[in-house]
Design a protein around this nucleic acid. Structure first.
Length: 587
DNA sequence: GCCGTTTTCGGCCCGACTGTTTTCAGTCG
């Protein structure tokens, strides 16, 4: 068991301990602390255990050291297994309802004996929750709202989840020699932030028989991640995968592939004006082909790929990410589509955490991982002092972190640069959590809201705009604060926020964490048109988090951004110049 | 479960909200 797995098991233990009756919240917290402590330790966990080096680490006492040793040496963790066996599944499910924590869950479970979310919903409707001690009508209503939110999003999945599932199957299918072409379609190909299901299209030789098609379907439906088969024929098979996500596979002859792929890539909204365009040219398009209609007879327009389809319609090729009917048809007709930014355009990372606050890896580890990924710089942005839950830095910490950065930069000179930054909390009134002196000592400043989410919209908007107009603030972090499938964003007027940011020359980031993807692509158009430079930030809390950058690229592409619109396509010196010049302009 | 000692058990990053209370418990980040 490697370090990240051990940390995960410790965190799971903390969750289950919190749900356990009569358990101390501090015991649960001890497991959280231990997970964090382990995260800050450098080196291979097996070696640390075998050499007895865990002893003396703050947060790891005799019990936890013994438990970590068990995990590392046996690959199992009996304490967690027992906890899992003794915790009703419904309690864990209830944790996902906003506003429900261990105390309320246990009260409800003990006194109303609910065994499912459905039973909890009924109990609320029967007014059985409001009468419990410490509960009331409003809490009951809030639980109902939370359940409704959960159900509304229950059949959707994060893009990242769909992507991983699809990639696994795509890799497996790609090994079949009978398959000529193979492509993910649907909302996943369009890089929507959440997806309902996975669509995949494969082609076989036009003269391939039933046996070839059936063999592919047999192979597909017998994949290890397939949990249930809901339909299976020669041209289409439908399954449910282990994560619960549904998947359709379609098999077509290779000459039909472009039309089918295009059809199942969508979106429906994109296809409506596209069909209108086809009709205006006496053509018609469906999943079987593009046809020229003359005197009532249809004649296929041969297309070897999607580019040919758009070309036949007198249009530039439209990238899948843009197929949402937000002006792409018109732009393609007039050959005005942007060249979209790509992952390879990125030169560095802006927005990453380290063990100085709630990150799992050290400054050095984060910097070296960025170097290994070919980046020229990383902007380190640990939390500010009020974010105590995340180990926020005091101004003195910030200064000492700066000294460590100076030392590392000396070592990396000429190869790589660590930029001094912060993710500074925006306080209730829109002021910042660090003094101007502290902020002035940094290369750049990200300001984010992490508390007081539901001020009245006008007040929340003013709070954000005040932060935007602060001369030291370069970037607003995760501007809506939404958690995909989990929580709505802050109550603020995003249009007004974007305009204020553009006016003050303040950037708004695309937070590339797959749970956030915030700023939303629907707002990017506007920001770009106002001339804003958009940083793509992974908000990385560990090394793996650095790879989330690609999700941010997906959002940027959906928002029509070119490489020149993205801040961190700049090399180190121009970027520092950008921060420097805008700061002196604003003051 | 860990820590720091006022060495043997009480406190445990913190600030703010909401909804329940009528001074506070629970949740969140």
């Amino acid at each position: 068991m490697d370090k990240s797995e051990v940390i995960q098991q410790l965190e799971d233990t903390a969750t289950l301990l919190a749900l356990k009756e009569n358990s101390s919240v501090f015991e649960a917290r001890a497991y959280e602390n231990a997970a964090r402590a382990l995260g800050t330790l450098n080196g291979d966990i097996e070696q640390l255990v075998s050499e007895g080096k865990l002893k003396g680490t703050p947060g790891l006492g005799p019990t936890l050291i013994k438990r970590i040793e068990e995990m590392v040496t046996t690959g199992r963790f009996s304490f967690l297994e027992e906890l899992r066996a003794s915790t009703p599944a419904v309690k864990i499910e209830m944790l996902r309802i906003p506003g429900m924590g261990p105390k309320r869950i246990n009260t409800i479970y003990d006194q109303v004996h609910v065994n499912s979310i459905a039973e909890l919903e009924q109990a609320c409707k029967d007014n059985k929750i409001a009468v419990l001690p410490g509960f009331g009508k409003k809490t009951q209503d809030k639980i109902l709202q939370g359940i409704a939110f959960m159900q509304e999003h229950a059949n959707r999945f994060l893009y990242s989840v769909g992507e991983q599932e699809a990639e696994q199957i795509r890799t497996a299918l790609a090994k079949l020699p009978q398959i000529v072409r193979l492509q993910v379609a649907g909302s996943l190909r369009r890089r929507r932030e959440t997806v309902k299901d996975i669509d995949m299209v494969v082609s076989v030789a036009d003269d391939a028989g039933s046996d070839v098609r059936n063999a592919i379907m047999d192979f597909f439906t017998s994949q290890p991640s397939v949990k249930a088969i809901t339909g299976k024929g020669e041209t289409k098979a439908s399954v449910i995968l282990s994560t619960g996500i549904a998947m359709d596979l379609r098999v077509v002859g290779d000459s039909q592939f472009p039309y089918t792929l295009h059809h199942f890539t969508g979106s429906r909204e994109h296809h409506i004006p596209l069909r209108r365009r086809a009709l205006s040219l006496n053509m018609t398009i469906n999943d079987y082909g593009l046809f020229k209609v003359e005197s009532g007879k249809e004649e296929l327009v041969p297309c070897k790929d999607e580019k040919d389809i758009y070309a036949a319609l007198g249009m530039e090729y439209i990238e899948p990410e843009l197929r949402e009917d937000t002006g792409e048809i018109e732009a393609a007709i007039h050959k005005q589509l942007p060249v979209l930014v790509q992952e390879s355009d990125l030169r560095g990372v802006i927005h990453a955490h380290t063990t100085w606050s709630d990150g799992k890896n050290s400054l050095r580890e984060m910097a070296e991982a960025c170097m290994a990924r070919g980046f020229s710089y990383v902007g380190i942005t640990d939390h500010s002092k009020i974010a105590a839950y995340a180990g926020g830095l005091s101004e003195d910490d910030l200064r000492r972190q700066g000294e460590e950065i100076d030392r590392l930069n000396e070592e990396f000179a000429g190869r790589f640069r660590i930029l001094k930054g912060t993710e500074c909390d925006i306080l209730r009134d829109g002021s910042l959590d660090f003094s101007d002196e502290a902020l002035a000592s940094l290369d750049f400043v990200i300001a984010s809201i992490h508390s007081i989410f539901n001020l009245p919209p006008a007040e929340q908007t003013q709070r954000m705009i005040r932060a935007i107009s602060n001369p030291y603030v370069d970037i607003i972090g995760h501007p809506t604060g939404r958690i995909l499938l989990g929580r709505e964003g802050y109550t603020l007027d995003m249009e007004a926020v974007i305009e204020a940011a553009a006016k003050h020359g303040t950037c708004i980031e695309i937070n590339a964490n797959p749970l956030r993807l915030d700023l939303d692509w629907r707002h990017l158009h506007r920001a770009r048109d106002l001339g804003m430079k958009i940083p793509i930030g992974p908000d990385a809390h560990n090394l793996a988090g650095l790879d989330d950058m690609r999700y941010g690229i997906g959002v940027a592409r959906k928002g029509w951004l070119r490489a020149s619109d993205v801040l961190n396509t700049l090399e180190t010196e121009p970027l520092l110049q950008f921060f420097h010049s805008r700061r002196s302009q604003k003051k």
